[in-house]
């Protein structure tokens, strides 16, 4: 029997890939304080996914289109100083969710779909889902790596980055689209709530351990993948919903990191070492 034929094997692979992808974009979500935007994205891409499945096109395409509209909308709204972007994001979230839920409700057997939208159905992940996630992982990693410098400059010092000639608006859109691609890819497999947890918690945990972006990113990817594996194991061990147990595992990683990193830091640290620069 092929290794990939086992649902649990596929779930394991998906959880590793999704955890890595989530950790990768999660670092930026946490640093730029985009958690609410991410939450809104998970809900606002929902009507796109539903509409795509009703029309019969690839649901990832539907999600990407809806997500891109939302990401561009947020970027446009956040350029307006007077706009309360938190409220605008909230409006998008509730509007998108209501539209998606309304669309689902017109179909038969909708409560199962809705539930899997919220908490995912990682145990029914298909080989094609795996390929999609892997491709998204490669694309997002490449984009984030290639754009590391402008993204760092814009995140740290917006006005300075503009003054140095970076089109900060463009870089915002690049970042939002990268997050959007990650969200759209992982939500169908693991659900909205889990997607948010996997994006935010491992990155927030990694943030506790280092002040270097490269280290934080590596840690976030590791924590994301480990949290996924641990949660999957707990789920099969105690027979609870996989999505929920992965979320709780990721939360536990964060709680542990917060406590342990404080303990480690409270010890006297060595004075600043002679430098070797990196960029």
């Amino acid at each position: 029997m092929n290794w990939w034929d086992d649902a649990l094997h596929r779930a394991t692979a998906e959880v590793l890939l999704a955890g890595a992808l989530a950790g990768l974009v999660g670092v930026h979500v946490v640093l730029r304080r985009l958690s609410f935007f991410t939450m809104a994205l998970t809900h606002a891409t929902f009507p796109g996914v539903v509409a795509a499945s009703i029309i019969g096109v690839n649901i990832v395409v539907g999600g990407v289109v809806a997500g891109a509209i939302v990401a561009l909308g947020v970027a446009a709204l956040s350029r307006h100083r007077s706009q309360n972007t938190a409220a605008a994001t909230g409006v998008m979230l509730s509007g998108g969710f209501a539209l998606g839920a309304g669309l689902v409700a017109t179909q038969n057997g909708f409560s199962r779909d809705l539930t899997s939208f919220l908490v995912g159905s990682i145990l029914t992940v298909s080989p094609q889902d795996l390929v999609t996630t892997a491709v998204a992982l490669v694309v997002v990693a490449a984009v984030l790596l290639a754009c590391a410098r402008p993204l760092r400059y814009t995140g740290f010092d917006r006005v300075g980055a503009q003054a140095a000639g970076f089109a900060t608006g463009v870089w915002d859109v690049v970042l939002l689209l990268a997050i959007q691609v990650a969200v759209v890819t992982i939500v169908p497999a693991i659900g909205t709530i889990l997607a948010l947890a996997l994006i935010v918690a491992p990155a927030a945990a990694a943030r506790q351990w280092s002040h270097r972006l490269s280290v934080i990113t590596a840690l976030a990817v590791t924590f994301g993948a480990l949290g996924g594996l641990g949660g999957l194991y707990a789920s099969s061990r105690w027979d609870v919903a996989a999505g929920a147990s992965i979320t709780l595992t990721a939360t536990a990683v964060l709680a542990l990191s917060t406590v342990l990193s404080r303990l480690v830091r409270s010890r006297p640290t060595a004075a600043a070492r002679p430098q070797a620069l990196a960029a």
Binding site: I193, L196, V240, S245, L254
Partner: peptide, 25 residues
């Protein structure tokens, strides 16, 4: 230790998941 939006996200997902764990049985 966390920015407040990240902590909100974590509380949201963790609490909701506890609910899901309870009903999923």
């Amino acid at each position: 230790a966390l920015s407040d939006d990240a902590s909100t996200a974590v509380v949201l997902t963790a609490m909701f998941s506890i609910g899901v764990v309870l009903v999923s049985r």
